[in-house]
């Protein structure tokens, strides 16, 4: 079977799917995995921009599906890490240009040569989401600690659970501000987990560096200096590869968030 196909989705837009996909992909590549990212957001492609590969695109996913080029020709290699490729989305078409069957066929072609295939899903629950879900072996749902994002994550998880084939789903909580949680102004990790009750893959703190790095096209994990969010992504990548990186215990109240804050603040291990 070869590679594992992991789809990253959220329901709601703007929670950080694309940024997370890029950072996770780079992290996995630095862990010496052969990784390919597939941008399934046809018509609104972004992953290439965040990864800083926009100017190297010649062909895209729709070209492959419609037979205008070979799959290999559409793959853009990221030269900053050993084995990272991007299969960009088409910008000029819309989601209906590709079918879920196309996505399955495409990823099956890729499985041979890679360890991990990450699919960046578009927001929403319609065609584009169906395309991204069809080939998935696993799904990572991303949410923010805010009520509307959690609602949409809940909806998405429900849809994935309703699929005939059982697809393991795990959760990444993005943009947590420990300071606000402590004041009771933001949902805590516990609050989110109580509602969604699925496996927690990791928590990423809010980090201004994310925005800067996205604009630059340099995923945070490629930066020379260590950043809280970059470290968090690296830990999540480790967990994806099966390494046992302990999560901060969630069964205690109060103190957890303080510890969370402290750990995010320090740079050794998050």
């Amino acid at each position: 079977m070869g590679a594992r196909v992991i789809t990253i989705t959220s329901g709601k837009g703007g929670v950080g799917k694309t940024t997370a996909t890029a950072n996770l992909a780079v992290s996995l590549a630095t862990l010496n995995k052969k990784v390919v990212c597939v941008d399934a957001d046809i018509g609104l492609r972004n992953l290439d921009v965040v990864m800083g590969l926009e100017n190297r695109i010649v062909y895209d996913l729709v070209d492959v599906v419609e037979g205008r080029c070979k799959l290999r020709q559409a793959m853009v290699k990221d030269k900053r890490v050993p084995d990272l490729y991007l299969l960009p989305a088409a910008q000029t078409r819309d989601k209906t240009a590709v079918s879920p069957q196309d996505m399955v066929a495409l990823t099956d072609q890729l499985r041979e040569d890679y360890d991990l295939i990450l699919i960046d899903s578009p927001a929403g629950i319609e065609w584009g989401f169906r395309n991204a879900l069809a080939p998935a072996d696993e799904v990572i749902v991303i949410t923010n600690p805010e009520v509307s994002a959690v609602r949409d994550a809940d909806r998405i998880i429900g849809l994935i659970e309703a699929e005939e084939r059982r697809i393991p789903v795990s959760l990444m909580i993005n943009r947590v501000k420990p300071e606000m949680v402590r004041r009771g102004d933001m949902l805590s990790v516990n609050d989110v987990m109580e509602i969604l009750s699925i496996r927690l893959l990791g928590v990423v703190p809010e980090d201004q560096e994310i925005l800067i790095s996205s604009n630059k096209g340099t995923p945070l994990t490629l930066e020379d200096h260590k950043t809280p969010a970059g470290e968090a992504f690296l830990n999540i990548a480790r967990r994806v590869t099966g390494e046992n990186v302990p999560l901060i215990s969630l069964d205690q109240k109060g103190g957890v968030l303080r510890r969370l804050a402290r750990m995010f603040g320090s740079s050794d291990s998050t």
């Binding site: 809940d154 998880i157 849809l159 009750s197």
Partner: peptide, 8 residues
């Protein structure tokens, strides 16, 4: 016998 999620 399962959680009814949003939309169900």
């Amino acid at each position: 016998k399962r959680t009814l999620r949003n939309g169900r």
